[in-house]
């Protein structure tokens, strides 16, 4: 394995049972992602983008082939090992933000650090740093319901970045945002990618996102039809 690649997929296939047969969401995906990449998987709905991200994120396992994330083969991980991989090294950003509604902004961002059993002072410092990256220091006591969509997604980015993960997976992060907010979000992520050398992999069909990508992988019917550096 090449040490500079933090994600490697080889002959990755994912089937979903449908009725008596099955639907092939991914059909032989061979990809590698290196440290610090700012890449995106693009393609129409149903092309397999989210499925690929789910497998890379160890939330799902391949039907055939291999997906190796940080030297760990997703298909061979137990549920606990997969959870540990996500807890320590992966960050997720979702289309619908998935913030915890009863928590404040501070508590939402602090959550991944609680799982890592960090001390209170370390947690506080890390959370305030993360909120500063996304420009939300003044909203630490607000709850998600009191924030705009753009602010919510910035909180989600802070939550994904607070533990300084090796890899961030963002599934349609701008789908619910207007143009101005989308650009703001993407600029923030681009800056974090540069400053922290974190690998970002997007699943998107939003042109605004695609413009920011350094690498664009096009999926169609579960197959890679184009892999280009932009």
């Amino acid at each position: 394995m090449n040490n500079s690649h933090i994600v490697i997929t080889e002959g990755l296939v994912k089937h979903y049972p449908i009725g008596g047969g099955y639907f092939t969401a991914l059909d032989g995906i061979d990809l590698q992602f290196g440290t610090g990449e700012f890449a995106g998987v693009v393609g129409p709905s149903g092309s397999g983008k989210t499925t690929l991200l789910n497998i890379i994120g160890s939330l799902d396992s391949p039907s055939e082939g291999k997906a190796v994330i940080l030297d760990q083969s997703v298909g061979e991980l137990s549920q606990k090992q997969a959870a540990h991989l996500r807890k320590k090294y992966l960050g997720f950003i979702f289309q619908t933000y998935n913030l915890l509604p009863v928590y404040t902004v501070f508590e939402n961002v602090e959550f991944p650090l609680l799982l890592l059993n960090m001390s209170v002072s370390d947690r506080r410092k890390a959370v305030l740093d993360a909120l500063e990256w996304v420009g939300l220091n003044d909203k630490i006591k607000s709850r998600p319901a009191q924030l705009s969509g753009g602010e919510c997604q910035r909180v989600a980015i802070a939550r994904a970045m607070v533990k300084k993960p090796r890899l961030v997976l963002a599934d349609e992060p701008t789908a619910n945002l207007d143009a101005a907010n989308s650009h703001h979000i993407l600029q923030t992520m681009e800056k974090l990618n540069k400053d922290l050398d974190t690998t970002f992999i997007f699943a998107t069909h939003d042109d605004k996102v695609i413009k920011y990508l350094k690498r664009k992988i096009t999926l169609e019917d579960g197959k890679v039809i184009k892999d280009e550096i932009t």
């Binding site: 939330l59 606990k80 959870a83 996500r86 807890k87 997720f92 979702f94 619908t96 991944p112 799982l115």
Partner: peptide
């Protein structure tokens, strides 16, 4: 359910 999924994505096991 979304919250439960988010907990799992952030590294909690089903048992947790």
């Amino acid at each position: 359910q979304k919250e439960i999924g988010t907990y799992m994505a952030m590294g909690m096991t089903r048992g947790q």
